[in-house]
Amino acid sequence: MTQLDVLRVFCGPDGGRGNELGVVRDGAPVPQEASRRRIAGKLGFSETVFVDDPERGQIDIHTPSLRLPFAGHPCVGAAWLLDVPELVTPAGVVGARQDGEFSWIEALPEWAPERTLRQYASAAEVDALEVPPPGEWIYAWAWEEEAAGRIRARAFPGRDDGVREDEATGAAALLLTAELGRALNIRQGLGSQILTAPQPYGWVEVGGRVRLTHSGLPLPR
């Protein structure tokens, strides 16, 4: 029987928070895109990963409403769970490595879905934001300590599928890193942490802590 693992990706320093991720380790029994989207919708996570080849690290990423060629926290979580040196996504081959308590991926900014990066004057302004209505995908951010690369951020997907705010979003962090051209330490959502670092030739590393919360759950019918 095809089963589901649930992870939390980009956990805070205390191991809490992080963005929940569903991983279907054997995607073969659910080959159709519509069926995968239906399962992702019933699970209600911001993204769900279907593993099509665990040895090659080939994955397929779905939100409750669409399929994504690449996404940050699903890749970080899947790389940690599968323990592979790379992931094969429709966008391209994502490098992966483990470094102590952190799981890292390396990707190109152009693989990330389009996001509006909206800077605010202070972390307090970001904290006070109301969730906007569906429409634009907004990554709201402000410097907490610019000299140290510390950022406060919140993410509003703008989708009408029940996910009003993302707790932690690696793709948006990747785009912000590429725009600012420096390593970042991002505090997002209610206490998640995302680390990033620019790499040669336009690549960007994105990393964070991953925790397994449930293993071997049945898929929703």
Rank of each mutant, 00 (worst) to 15 (best):
V9M: 00
T196H: 02
A197W: 01
A142T: 04
R209A: 11
R115H: 14
D83I: 01
P74K: 09
L7N: 02
L195Y: 13
L176R: 07
A168F: 00
G15L: 06
R211Y: 01
G95T: 00
G72N: 10
I59D: 02
P85I: 02
E110D: 15
V23H: 02
D53R: 05
L66K: 11
R56V: 06
R164Q: 13
A153Y: 04
I105A: 10
E145R: 13
G27K: 06
G44E: 10
Q193Y: 02
G216F: 03
D14L: 04
F45D: 09
Q193A: 12
G181D: 12
D83F: 00
V6G: 01
A155L: 13
E114T: 14
L129N: 13
D166C: 08
L43R: 06
D60S: 15
L87C: 12
G216N: 11
S35E: 15
R221V: 10
L66M: 13
Q98F: 01
I186C: 08
P29N: 04
E145V: 05
Q188E: 13
N19E: 12
E130T: 12
D99Y: 01
L217W: 10
G16I: 02
L66A: 14
E205Q: 14
R154N: 08
P74W: 02
A140K: 01
S35L: 05
G191W: 06
T196K: 07
P64K: 02
E106S: 14
I194W: 02
I151N: 06
